[in-house]
Amino acid sequence: MTPGVKPHIQMPARVAAGDVITIKVLAMHDMESGQRQDGAGNIVPRSILNRFTCAFNGARVVDIQLEPAIARNPYFQFSALVPEAGEFTFSWYGDDGSVIETTKHIQIT
């Protein structure tokens, strides 16, 4: 992932305890599949985000293993149960060893 590019996360800022929310997550990444040829006919080497995780106050929501068949700028939409106020942690792991982590607070109404 290009350093400095913040992933986009869409989710409510406050909910009632025990509510289920929808989380939409978009990361900006070329997800080079290792199948594409450049102008000179050379294969562009594979470089993708190979794992995405989302946890809430340390408990797992999803842990996704990504393959080159995931489209550029990987987008995920999933649901999470929010039992209490706290913090969502989102992490992406790149083939190049890079880890991008971002957090989002949620409040209880």
Binding site: A59, R60, V62, D63, I64, L66, A69, A80
Partner: peptide, 9 residues
């Protein structure tokens, strides 16, 4: 892709 769902999913 392979998704492991946690207790809060």
């Amino acid at each position: 892709a392979t998704v492991h769902f946690g207790p809060l999913s």
